[in-house]
Design a protein around this nucleic acid. Structure first.
Lengths: 333, 333
DNA sequence: ATAATTTAGGTAAACGTTTAACCATGAGAG
DNA sequence: CTCTCATGGTTAAACGTTTACCTAAATTAT
């Protein structure tokens, strides 16, 4: 059976308050002799304090929830690592939740996390959720949204990437390199980043006096599968294009596969630009020209903001918008 | 302020016991009228039960710890996903911990997890830890080790992959394809899988009457960096080889890069075999011939075993050894 | 010498639940 | 008419801590 503070107290012949104080290093008023005696007993009997009991009183669990679509999607391990690193530094634990972009799972995780009394939540929402604020107004704890924000939700903090500018720079580069018919294989337009990237794409075309052609736009998911199928479908359609601006790197990887199967060379026949700069972008052939997002930093900053908010609930945090960087590799000429 | 069971009870004009019963669906003896009244109040006032208070009594937190080296290493997201999926199914939460293969971090996580009263731990240990059982004997909760086991620790369950046979099959295949001088770029020999893969490698050589050449063995880490540096060093040494058996796919990817830089073609000049079959293996050029491990299944099974053990502490579980499968792609001739 | 302060620790309430044990009422059985 | 049982609850202890407040002795200041 697990040993409790009460038993340590009895053995040390002091009150449990005294033991509590030395355990929590609030031992200003404890004599060195007593302190050492207690410490020895703790060591000897392998006492481990029950933090759930502490939590009852302090009303802090020192844990935060992280809700992401899927840790298996190469974009997320880095952000997860970022949040875990900062959380760990600050003495917090992180509870990992994969929502699969499923609003029902999201809501159920939120309920569970709140029941478990996590101190805050970091959330990458599946969709913009224009109107389901009902579930979300139930938040009784701080929430930071990361990457994708929720329009109608007044969260206490947001951390995003400047997707518009990122896409704008990527597409502008493509145009400058001479591409004129740029297919855009986008992620789901229910998510803010997709929307913004598409906007950046249109803006770049416009600023370079290129027409926007709706036939050159296709919407799907952030997966290699979609990249493959989307590119294939486009190739088999009557629209022609000389390059593809992909919603993310996974889409780009899938697209390359489809092009190769049709005997097309990248970048000779078709140029490709991705988004994210996941590690894989550096190992596929050809290496992907892409827009680099600071994934790790997003997670790290999100945890930092959240924990700041947990410690000082009144503070108002400025939303953070991180910059992207165009990484030129081999998939564009 | 958060609303408690007490306030719901007062408003419904019943005892808190009654509210507790309907919240936990132990409402056999509660009239439908009362039940509905309570449910309505809960809904109306957005009451969320405090599970940390429950945990005090039930002595279950319904959460498990997952300690892995690094979620950023492409091998782990899938196992993490496996454990989270089963855990979620069974009503558990998972706390994610990245140990960075650092024994100090490991021990500190173990202490933190136990203080937080997780019901069990799934652990991928950094090393074999011949003798530091001291820290580990402190376990007061079930532990399942996954992928890498700890020799001296009598855990209640182990789940591994048959690395010896996997490596044996991979190397045998290489030999059958005509490779005779197979460099082995291994992961750290402080980990069981590396050791076993090396053993499988030696066994295959032996069974095919090929000599074991110590100069053809190099030990490093499970990273692309090591693959790159290890291959480069080998190329610059006086030993010659016609193929590389890599400790994992990341090493293989790094090695390919080093070979390309030296102007060598895979598989024409040098054949390559990896281990793990991460997604990236299918997108690098050339696609990697590799030994496929059931990563997701390892995580899923581990969670299953752990939760079984949590529910029935007396049960003795058989260790699980999962099979591997040789996947032939383009990096071997 | 006395008052004030410091040192070293104790007391007990509180946190929000669960659950075993108990109780009151009414209906049906004999 | 009494006994038994089911129904629909209530009571109160317990879980393992933290912390505001209290006390007694020892030390220091005046």
């Amino acid at each position: 059976m697990k040993i409790t503070i009460k038993e340590i107290a009895k053995m040390a012949d002091v009150s449990i308050a005294t033991v509590s104080k030395v355990v929590n290093h609030k031992d200003k008023n404890i004599s060195e002799a007593t302190r050492q005696r207690i410490l020895d007993l703790i060591e000897e009997h392998n006492y481990v304090p029950n933090r759930v009991a502490s939590s009852m009183i302090t009303k802090k669990t020192n844990s935060i929830g992280l809700i992401i679509p899927d840790i298996t999607n190469p974009f997320f391990p880095e952000v997860a690592r970022g949040v875990e690193d900062y959380a760990n530094l600050a003495g917090y634990h992180v509870v990992l939740c994969n929502s699969d972009n499923n609003p029902i799972k999201e809501v159920s995780y939120i309920a569970m996390l709140q029941e478990k009394m996590v101190d805050g939540i970091i959330f990458t929402s599946s969709s913009l959720r224009k109107n389901i604020s009902k579930e979300f107004l139930k938040f009784q704890i701080p929430v930071i949204t990361v990457d994708r924000d929720i329009e109608d939700l007044k969260t206490q903090g947001k951390i995003t990437v400047d997707n518009i500018t990122g896409a704008y720079n990527g597409v502008s580069y493509m145009i400058e390199r001479g591409y004129k018919h740029i297919l855009h294989l986008a992620g789901p337009l229910t998510s803010k980043p997709s929307l913004d990237r598409h906007e950046g794409y249109k803006k770049a075309l416009n600023d370079h006096n290129l027409p926007y052609d709706a036939a050159l736009f296709r919407e799907g998911n952030y997966t290699a599968d979609w990249g493959y199928n989307g590119a294939k479908a486009a190739l088999e359609s009557e629209t022609t294009f000389d390059s593809i601006f992909c919603g993310n790197d996974m889409i780009a990887i899938g697209a390359i596969k489809a092009l190769y199967e049709k005997g097309l060379k990248v970048p000779d026949d078709i140029g490709i630009v991705g988004f994210d700069d996941i590690y894989m972008a550096t190992v596929v052939s050809p290496n992907l020209t892409t827009i680099c997002q600071p994934n790790y930093m997003m997670g790290y900053k999100a945890a930092e903001m959240l924990i700041e908010l947990i410690k000082h609930p009144q503070s108002v945090l400025e939303d953070v918008v991180l910059k992207t960087e165009l990484i030129i590799r081999e998939s564009t000429k």
